[in-house]
Amino acid sequence: MGQGVFVIAEQRDGAFRKVTYEAVSEGRRLADGLNSDLTAAVLGSDVEKIAGELGKYGADTILAVDDPALSDYSTDGYTNVLSDIIKAHDPKLVILGASMQGKDLAARLAARLDTGVVMECIGIKIDNGKLVYTRPMFGGKIIADVELSGTPPIAAIRPNVMPIVEAPKSGVVDKPVVQAGEIKTSVVERIKDEGDKIELTEADVVVSGGHGTNGDFALIEELAALLNGAVGASRFAVDEGWRSHGDQVGQTGKIVSPNLYIACGISGAIQHVAGMSTSKNIVAVNKDSEAPIFSKSDYGIVGDLFEVVPAIIEEIKKINNI
């Protein structure tokens, strides 16, 4: 069994993703618990200049892997490099963010290393020296504790769940020599979503609309913008073509756990609730006082969302002196 905790950092366009800070913070906490060091690795081109920042969150050493061949993420290149580095490092545990890229990488890396991986992990504890991982299954209808075997185990942590904690360490930046190896895919185009849309799975606030919107999301958009949040939608709203597939919250869509989830005109089908039940605070607005969503919420208002949401918007503006 190896030593130390190893975090795979994720950066895009020269900036770390938020989940990377969460992963480093969690890695630090576990490294302290295990009385060991925390090493982070960041791959890309020209990443040396950002690498040191991870010291602020508790990385003792940061491996900056600069290679033009790694400037775009590729499953092949990143798996080749990281499997070599991880084998050489032999850590006790590898942590990374369960972003789209992170999950793609974790799955391939685990198969390459013939080791256990836990996806969308929401908790890691040290139990008599053994690591126990908590993760949702069935879209959140079940919470499971799992143990991993294989060297090393890999935990892909769900974004927005674990806290970011500053815990400054030396953060020594090291530049290992690596081989990107054969990369069979190439990125030929990158299309950024329009506007400064906040990613659903990373948002602090999510305002979602369903059947009750009748396809009019203007108020949902307005409330989300006011709270600096993202817009979500029920499967019904997506199936009707009112919102794009990427906005769907639920067991067959995105799983979100914001600080505040506001469900407007959503009845609360089981598969929708599965996608938002780990939200810290849930507010439901629905005309039907019997709607199942209320039993899954912290606060409820019975009423027409087209009257209630404008009133909520007005009240928020009042307390914020807008």
């Binding site: 685990a110 256990g116 991986v117 079940i142 499971a144 504790d145 799992v146 991993l148 075997s149 185990p153």
Partner: peptide, 15 residues
């Protein structure tokens, strides 16, 4: 198995 489920529970009920 590399992944062993040791416990399953239903998510905590909200107040």
């Amino acid at each position: 198995n590399r992944v062993k489920i040791t416990a399953m529970k239903l998510p905590p009920e909200r107040d």
